[in-house]
Write a protein that binds this DNA or RNA. Structure first.
Lengths: 352, 352
DNA sequence: CCTGGCACTCTCGGGGTGAGAGTGCTAATG
DNA sequence: CATTAGCACTCTCACCCCGAGAGTGCCAGG
């Protein structure tokens, strides 16, 4: 392992600062001028040569100054950088935008990814909690029109998901009422995953027993909870990548945009790092889940064990980490807060 | 006005065909080879010179073959072209994708714009019906959690829109039930626009009369119907523009992507052409609503007078019109069909 | 250990050039 | 009289060369 003396670390930090600022390779001369401690370009060149040997700097070509490598960013993020405070107007914007999105899950995630994108100037995304982490508080089925049933799921922190299902025959309002009550009683407090499995078994049992009407109702419930993997990833602001000089050529743009179309990759990446709280994943570290020229700042949101999802931004590794990381964390907290707003935990019914 | 003899029209048609195919200017030589009637390049050059004088062809530079102008596309679309039949597998895909989107408005529009994009290889979009054209059949308010009310609107063709509103204090279930019944009775069959206006007046009246509780309920209803202009435009597949050679340079890409971000423009364009059934708008004809290098194929959907919206695709003027126009029309019909599926008109309750 | 100096390398933009593509025109042709 | 062959002309594009500029690496001296 390479050890860096404090002076080298200072130089490296300054190189990153300058490079993030300008987007271009940093020369020894520019560095010498920007640094308080007046070292000559020649001395700095020596240090830069060491840093290059250590794998922290690279040069695009012989006479082009130095560019930080991913290894340098890693060190910077882990040890050199200090988070900056989030500006008050940013806080306000987050609060107001999320507030106006209301309690609807979809709108909340859309607003969050949009905020992430706008505040970072990069691509923002939110991955909704998966079935393992989502606890259901109640289920309700309503006949809204002939052949159409509205299904309302209320999750553990008070998030509401509603959808309309088409059914073959008509359902009797009373029948739906009974179904709602029964399923809520049976499944309140369990995760989507568990409920889905239980439903499948029950469905098979009733079918075997020839309970037609009941099986039909259970089938409806199963469909309601089976909407997995569809709308789970919310992405906003892909076009912001156009502004980044590192994607000035069209061919590289194409590749990156494609990778956002097939969201499964993003998914893999995110689930792999889900547990880790806030973290930065550099493209070169992601083992193929992400273009090596991209990187992500991720954090998880949700309250405790239930309803845990991920959000963050994606952009070039060259970004203002001290500003962006706190923004991502702010959004994680804000979304968590929204999801458990008006904490109605006290209402849980433990008398069983 | 310029008249074109049949031979010139044939040549023009073939030029468009070749240019759509290759994306590059068409030379007299290439044309002479592709055409059955064996004319020599020299003869064809004469005709091409005429077409250029008439404003149907342009040349990027002196020695570069000819490119069709928007005027040529206009003639082609209006007179020269014949629609091709939509392939069976395309029909099937449309049917199955829309079917699996169910009856939920948002999902239906998302699926439609995605289909449009995929099938055309361009940017697909759907503009939801506006408040003037949407008739409401019933309104329903439900308390789903403390401080959260679910509002369900059923529109005239059986489309369901649901949303969750946050409220300051709690609403009594009975109170919400009464509100639902009253508003449905009062407003069934009227348009969103009309209802909104009536609500405002009523709200002012009750407030003046000091009817606190009622005013509070009406305010809730007003908020429910006031979600205008937010999610009305669904766009999918903007990244497909990257594949088009006409947008190979990054600067022009930026401009175009920006224009999709501010969707108001698209809106203007679409509302202006709403009444006209299926039509093609070339960028140069759109008076600034659209980049002159883009063009759109639009059609309206909806059943008769109620619930009328627009959908279509946007891409370069160089496109396979004979294939794309029928696809757009197919989607218009398919979405219309979905919106009035299971025609439940008969069930309306006229005994008042 | 730092620094001034110097040779070296690489990029980038401008200018020149030659091949290739395609046209426009004219004169010959059936 | 429409059609065509032939030919001169124009423009682009890829390539190469060259010199200016930027930046480095290294060495020798402080």
């Amino acid at each position: 392992m390479f050890m860096l003396d404090p002076r080298a670390r200072g130089i490296l930090k300054e190189i990153i600062r300058l490079h993030v600022d300008t987007g271009r390779p940093v020369s020894s001369r520019a560095l010498s001028k920007s640094i308080r401690n007046g070292l000559s370009p020649a001395s700095i060149r020596n240090i830069m040569a060491d840093l290059t040997d250590g794998g922290f700097l690279a040069q695009p070509h012989t006479s082009a100054g130095r560019v930080p490598t991913d290894r340098a960013y890693r060190l910077y993020i882990d040890e050199l950088m200090r988070h900056r405070k989030v500006a008050d107007d940013v806080r306000e914007q987050v609060d107001s935008d999320l507030a106006s999105a209301g309690a609807d899950m979809t709108r909340l995630f859309q607003a969050s990814s949009r905020l992430l994108s706008r505040l970072s100037g990069e691509v923002g995304f939110v991955v909704a909690p998966d079935a393992v982490h989502t606890r259901v508080r109640s289920l309700r089925f309503l006949a809204v029109a002939p052949g159409k049933v509205l299904v309302v799921q209320v999750h553990d922190p008070d998030v509401v998901v509603s959808q309309v299902l088409e059914t073959d025959g008509a359902f009797n309002p009373r029948e739906l009422e009974a179904l709602s009550e029964r399923l809520t009683r049976e499944f309140a407090g369990r995760t989507l995953q568990e409920i889905r499995q239980a439903l499948m078994e029950e469905l098979a049992r009733e079918r075997a027993a020839g309970a037609q009407a009941l099986a039909r109702a259970l089938e409806l419930a199963r469909r309601a909870l089976d909407r997995e993997g569809e709308d789970r990833v919310y992405v906003d602001g892909t076009s912001r990548l156009l502004d980044k000089p590192e994607f000035a050529d069209v061919t590289s743009l194409k590749r990156v945009f494609r990778s956002f179309d097939e969201r499964a990759r993003l998914f893999d990446l995110v689930t792999r790092y889900l547990e880790k709280g806030t973290c930065v994943v550099l493209g070169s570290e992601s083992e193929g889940d992400m273009d090596p020229r991209l990187s992500a700042v991720l954090t998880s949101y949700g309250s405790g064990e239930t309803l845990t999802g991920t959000l963050g931004v994606i952009g070039p590794a060259r970004r203002e980490y001290p500003r962006v990381i706190p923004v991502v964390e702010l959004l994680g907290r804000a979304l968590s807060g929204r999801l458990e707003a008006k904490d109605s935990r006290a209402e849980e019914d433990e008398t069983e």
